[in-house]
Simulated assay, not measured.
Amino acid sequence: MGDYADLPGVRTWYETEGTGDPLVLLHGGFCTNDTWGAQRADLAAAYRLHLPERRGHGHTPDVEGPLRYEDMAEDTVAFLEKVVRAPAHLLGWSDGGIVALLVALARPDLVRRIVVIGANFRPAPECFVEPSMLDALTPHSPGLAFFRELYEAVTPDGADHWPVVAAKVTGLWRTGPTLTTDDLARVRAPALVLVGDDDMMTLEHTAALYRAMPDGALAVVPGASHLVPLEKPALVNRLILDHLEQDAVETMAPVRRA
């Protein structure tokens, strides 16, 4: 089921499903909650899912000015306080993973465990395998056709607003996020960094993200891309649930965790 929450920054659409401890799902850039279709049933069998659509995405209207990760993190904090009303696990994909990291830094009291899928902590020109791909992502380019259709089907701003939002998202990728490894060292929530072995971000960047967090774990899924939750859903769902359910990582020959 879906409804709107009147948050300080923006009137935010969200959906809920399942029972149990709260788990907030944060979709990727250009996306809607529909892109979680391969995860919802498995995760809702164990958790109470909360799925907000961020400003300028899906059913949630755009706002004046550029998109900023910090603003979307503030929206998510407000959502946790007003709608979830309890500390929650965060599952973020791509831009959603960046937002999850920022929320974990700003409000550790609201975050239990986090999973970030295909996330980066530096702007795209610094971490993309092919930074030039941004130049090809124009509003009506074939590469954005799938996302344009998702947007046009549900946006309250009208289909004609798509070029504005598309420009905002690609602009966001060029300039943010701007976290450092010192920032990431302050993430105290146990964090699973999950990525396809052929993601948009370099594996070196993903490894740096994992290594920077004191209580991090890393999963590189073979034969997968940035769309790993859709390509390998059974494996991804199992990895997510294993991380959320374990109390601590115990291995037979620890080195980093010794």
Rank of each mutant, 00 (worst) to 15 (best):
P233G: 09
R148F: 05
W162L: 02
C31R: 07
P125E: 06
L137G: 07
R257V: 11
H57M: 05
E70S: 14
P123T: 10
L23A: 04
M201S: 11
P123C: 13
F147G: 00
R48P: 01
A136H: 12
L192G: 04
R54W: 03
I114M: 15
G196V: 12
M1D: 03
Y151W: 11
P22Y: 03
P52I: 02
V169T: 01
F147H: 05
L25P: 04
L43R: 13
A167Y: 00
N120Q: 15
A212T: 00
D109F: 09
L102G: 02
D71K: 01
A153E: 11
V255G: 11
V164S: 09
R122A: 11
A104D: 01
G97T: 05
V154K: 06
P8D: 00
A78K: 00
D215F: 13
A100F: 03
V111F: 13
G143S: 11
R68K: 14
R174L: 04
A258T: 12
T12P: 02
L49H: 02
D21R: 05
I114E: 12
L235R: 05
P61F: 00
P87D: 03
G20Q: 04
H226A: 13
Q246P: 06
L244E: 00
F121W: 15
A219R: 15
P190Y: 07
V24G: 10
I117Y: 01
L230F: 12
R188M: 07
V165S: 07
V228H: 09
L26Q: 04
T12Q: 13
L244F: 08
N120E: 09
T181K: 09
M213E: 05
R257G: 12
F79G: 08
D135C: 07
R174F: 02
V83H: 12
R68F: 06
V77P: 08
R68W: 08
R148Y: 09
G176H: 00
R48S: 12
N120S: 08
V193K: 03
D71Q: 08
G96K: 01
K82F: 05
C31M: 14
A224H: 11
R257A: 15
G158C: 01
P8S: 05
R85Y: 02
D62W: 01
R54K: 04
A224I: 10
P22A: 10
M252T: 13
T32S: 15
G171F: 04
G97A: 01
R85E: 15
G143W: 08
G2H: 08
P222C: 13
D182E: 14
V249N: 06
A166E: 00
A191Q: 03
F79M: 11
E231S: 07
L209V: 13
V249Q: 13
T12N: 04
V129A: 15
N33L: 10
H57S: 07
E64S: 10
D95K: 08
M213Q: 05
A167C: 02
T155G: 01
G58S: 02
A38W: 02
C127R: 14
W93Y: 15
Q39M: 07
V10C: 14
R85C: 13
L137T: 03
L67R: 12
